[in-house]
């Protein structure tokens, strides 16, 4: 947990017409951390995530990933960076025309470095790692349940052994049981493989159980970014509503970080 930040956002402005989404926003993630981004609807979580992924350009400010300024570096370098991260989209974004197997194999095939037999073995390892039965390898995404789609999408995000993983609402649309299992899976993989995780989420239980740090997005910036107990102690109307409402207190009562205090 030392060294230069993996993601470093400085002085970020996002403006759509008259609407200011981010005003001079700073945000950074250190290697090996799990950082959750929380914020109300429309607070710009997804926009921030998309900007860090290079899908959108900020109006002003710099975004560095692995120390490289994303929006000004040369395209070849950017392409290399893109192979070092994995993204789990909110709805999975599996390629609907490809089977589960081909979805996971696609990034590997794109490298043109390994033969088909080798790729098959790797895909099987990844399917096994996310707890999917091999019988589902030839299934089409349309025939999978919501939980399985997330698992396959996670396997695809992890297939290139990323150092940085983005999770956009990883538990949205899953029932509590499934979402707990999925969070446990992410946590186990994180402990085993030691990648860095940036996660946008609404789900308090998820956040409490896996995050090292929580960044709260409100008033167009990150108002506080720290451990759970630091965040809860920060005085801000959004934090009061979100963490200290009834639902929040219930989730927090299960949090080990607060019990030790």
């Amino acid at each position: 947990m030392s060294g230069a930040p993996v993601v470093d956002v400085k002085g970020l402005w996002t403006v759509y017409g008259d609407l200011v989404v981010h005003r001079d926003l700073d945000f950074s993630v250190m290697p090996g951390e799990v950082v959750s981004l929380v914020g109300g609807s429309g607070s710009g979580k997804t926009t921030l995530l998309r900007q860090i992924l290079g899908l959108e350009r900020p109006h002003r400010g710099s975004i560095r990933v692995f120390g490289v300024p994303l929006h000004t570096c040369d395209p070849g370098l950017f392409k290399k960076i893109r192979k070092r991260w994995g993204v789990l989209f909110q709805h999975g974004a599996l390629y609907s025309a490809l089977s589960v197997f081909d979805n996971i194999a696609l990034p590997l095939r794109e490298l043109h470095a390994f033969d088909a037999d080798f790729i098959r073995d790797i895909v099987m390892v990844k399917l096994d790692a996310v707890g999917m039965d091999k019988r589902h390898a030839s299934t089409m995404p349309a025939d999978l349940s919501g939980g399985m789609i997330k698992r396959v999408a996670l396997a695809r995000a992890l297939v290139l052994e990323p150092e940085l993983v983005f999770l956009d609402e990883p538990t949205a649309g899953l029932d509590p049981d499934r979402s707990e299992a999925f969070v446990k899976l992410v946590r186990d993989l994180h402990i085993k493989l030691n990648f860095t995780v940036v996660m946008a989420t609404h789900d308090l239980d998820t956040m409490v159980s896996v995050s090292d740090r929580i960044a709260v997005l409100a008033d167009q910036k990150v108002v506080v970014c720290g451990r759970l107990d630091e965040v809860v102690r920060y005085d801000h109307p959004f934090i009061r509503d979100f963490f200290l409402g009834e639902r929040g207190r219930r989730a927090l009562s299960a949090a080990p970080a607060l019990q030790t205090n």
């Binding site: 098959r120 073995d121 099987m124 390892v125 399917l127 096994d128 790692a129 091999k134 390898a137 085993k192």
Partner: peptide, 15 residues
């Protein structure tokens, strides 16, 4: 160790 553990448990049953 875990990487070989993963290879072992996946033990590709070649369809």
């Amino acid at each position: 160790e875990i990487f070989f553990g993963a290879c072992e448990s996946a033990a590709a049953v070649a369809s």
